[in-house]
Design a protein around this nucleic acid. Structure first.
Lengths: 115, 115
DNA sequence: TTGTATATGCCGATGATCGGTATATGCTGA
DNA sequence: TCAGCATATACCGATCATCGGCATATACAA
């Protein structure tokens, strides 16, 4: 599906599920921990992303539990989800590498702008 | 605040300008080259991004040239733009590192992933 | 003269995310 | 006691970057 790049929340949801199956709220917590508290996923964003990723076949329901009358629906990465996350990760790394090289070069230059 | 993560086209525009001042069309070409042809910026995306980034103070007009009756408006990164790109790059690298570690761990596990 | 490359720019549609709200339950503290 | 917070899922309207197309010019090649 198109190499429309993933947005940050979507990428982080997949990364959270890459570690182990998690239910929605646990994904929110893991994403917050992973980003040092910077990213607090909104409930609307999270559950919409979960539905969308499931429809795309990148994640699937692992199991459901009921704890203290509350439902916990656990999701896990599918094979396609894992490949998608790996591809996206490679893209992030490549682009970071290119940008870093260029940023470094700016401070390596002695005085002048290149012609 | 500006905690809102940059989208891919915006990041690539800044990366293109990090190397040297470029005019719009040259940005499109550089981004295509940088991504191995994967990302072909739309004119609408590019010029809207240029206007937006200029309004945000991340880029500014470097100079204007007229070549064969056609205007070329060159843009360059500002100090704020350079810091913003550096921050975004760090974010990409961190997230790629976390995702890679988790993806690797999945294949390190004894017994492999459940079908 | 049709098409491609250069070059900038506008405009409507799309869709992921944001921010808020709703619905429950259980725990803690004033 | 009752307010507030954490847990947990889910819907909703608004925002806005991007997409995809179109318009405008000029120059050159097929």
């Amino acid at each position: 599906m198109t190499d429309v790049p993933m947005r940050e929340p979507t990428f982080l949801v997949l990364t959270a599920l890459a570690e182990e199956p998690r239910h929605g709220y646990a994904v929110i917590e893991d994403v917050a921990a992973m980003t040092g508290g910077r990213v607090r996923l909104r409930a609307g964003t999270l559950y919409a992303a979960l539905d969308r990723l499931r429809a795309e076949g990148l994640i699937e329901v692992d199991r459901e539990e009921v704890v203290q009358s509350r439902l916990r629906r656990y999701y896990r990465l599918t094979g396609a989800g894992e490949r998608s996350l790996a591809a996206e990760t490679a893209r992030l790394r490549e682009q970071a590498t290119i940008a870093e090289r260029r940023l470094r070069a700016r401070h390596t230059e002695l005085g002048g702008a290149p012609a």
